[in-house]
Design a protein around this nucleic acid. Sequence first.
DNA 1: GCTATAGATGTAATAATATAACATTTGCAA
DNA 2: TTGCAAATGTTATATTATTACATCTATAGC
Lengths: 168, 168
Amino acid sequence: MTHDGRNDVLRPFPDQRHDHDACRSEALAQVVAACAERGLRLTPLRRRVLELIWSSHTPVKAYDLLDRLRREHAAAAPPTVYRALEFLVEQGFIHRIESLNAYIGCSEPEQAHQGQFLICDSCGDAAELSDPDIAAVLRRKAEMLGFQLDVCTVELKGRCARCETAAG
Amino acid sequence: MTHDGRNDVLRPFPDQRHDHDACRSEALAQVVAACAERGLRLTPLRRRVLELIWSSHTPVKAYDLLDRLRREHAAAAPPTVYRALEFLVEQGFIHRIESLNAYIGCSEPEQAHQGQFLICDSCGDAAELSDPDIAAVLRRKAEMLGFQLDVCTVELKGRCARCETAAG
DNA sequence: GCTATAGATGTAATAATATAACATTTGCAA
DNA sequence: TTGCAAATGTTATATTATTACATCTATAGC
């Protein structure tokens, strides 16, 4: 279930007026816990980059992160950001959206997984699915073809329900 | 059926020793026909870029195309290549592989469609599927979520059957 | 507490990918 | 044959990402 009490599968997009502070805090807490469990160092930089990514549900670009980071950390340079992103992606704390060259917080950071993404062209928000039916059909097709499947990139563009409604 | 007489769905990867000249020629001919039908200009530049992309089943990067184009066309510059790519993608004659920043010839250029891609990390080749089951499950999930689906990016990385066999 | 070390960060430069803006040329329709 | 729209040429720049090496910092073993 999501923060607003509705079913995840049916409402992957965050509610327009959801408590985003709580949303971000929860994600951060899960990452803190995962790092403790795995013996990883969530340094101030890494943590700050993660917070900035979680500032919204819109995928963030590396250089936008860099600009924001520089306001509070003059030494920030491209490698600063890319290293933090690399760490966060490797650990499954964020995902990279290939078709946008952008990054978004993972909604289930505690266990590694491969999600699928719905990306609204209208509001820019992205929602993560972990849909077993999609995963299963991809696995099945790959297997039929003798293809040893490793990474699945599934990025679906369109218009989210909220924007669709708003547009009438 | 493919050029080697086997079922497409079961063998999307080209045979190692397939007649690639014939493979490329067929694709070119289909594009020529589609352009004639749609009243589009397949200029020498566009045609040449398409030929270069079809020189293998490995997705090609824009600047690799540029390097090759320059050998025979001194005036070639980034916009030369990107414009040709834009035309070819818009018309569905090639596809962009988002996770590689690279381009590959479309195996069914006559009708617009959205494929799915299997990309072998070992040999680099990519194969296109037009799998109705994958398309259907994505459509169904999007609909359940009230998401107005537009573009589907499905890129599956792993190891193709040939490389899997070769690796023992 | 020291100190060696691995991991993290700083710093400068550059590589790789892509687009903007405007000039010129070309194909084709009126 | 000429005028326009589309295509290409040309220069510059924007955006995204990595390399290479220097320095700092946390911490494990002494």
